[in-house]
Amino acid sequence: MISLIKLELKKFKLNGYFLCVIVSNLVMTVLVWMMMLQWSVENTYIHPTYNVAFDLTRSMVNFTFVIFAAILMARIIVGEYVNKTTSVLFTYPIRRQKLLISKLALISLVTFVIIIISNLFINLVLIGLNVKYDFVKEPLTSPIISNQVVEILIHAVLKTMSSWIPLVLGMLRKSPTTTIVSVFIIEFTSISMNNGPTYTVTPAVEMTLAVIGAVGAYWMIYKAEREDIL
């Protein structure tokens, strides 16, 4: 499996992807910081606490990297069908299931890790900035931190799983465009059902999406083994 993942990395160079990750992390840091500053100055109904800051970061990071995941899936999985390279790939003495699972594992692992690292990075920068700008007035206690760590982990898992839905939809029609369009539709719909100003998605919605994603991915991989490669 690991050697298959390495081969995928050889085929699809991800340098550009990682560059985009860095840039979007910087952009998101600035956005969250600006919003927090705004809220602390304007005296709106939102009280700028650490939890608000971290929630805001998390929902932004999740939103961004689920879309990134869809782009990777459109390229690495659906793209192989569209470019017809599957007609070579599937003549190798490796089961289609295994090939697809290793592709999915690569993308999901990258997405999961990037979501966590980005959360950590942005939150640490915010904590650092707060020392100077003091937009959060409360002290940073260990319950806040441990609570956030748990939240970040759980949501990273759920988000990674729900990122499989656009893939399944794209695979139905063998169309990368479907994958990209559907990820935007799903993300904007779930944000519209949000929990207040930090745009965190309701847990029920997030969990449902994750389950749909998991079932869809299983069905897609099962089906791929029996499919004709046109």
């Binding site: 007609s87 003549t91 029996r226």
Partner: peptide
């Protein structure tokens, strides 16, 4: 379906030659 043993012993060029361009 799903049995890959024989594929190791086959070389093929089918249809339009496809590569990672």
């Amino acid at each position: 379906t799903g049995d890959c043993k024989s594929k190791k012993r086959i070389g093929s060029l089918i249809d339009y030659p496809i590569f990672y361009e």
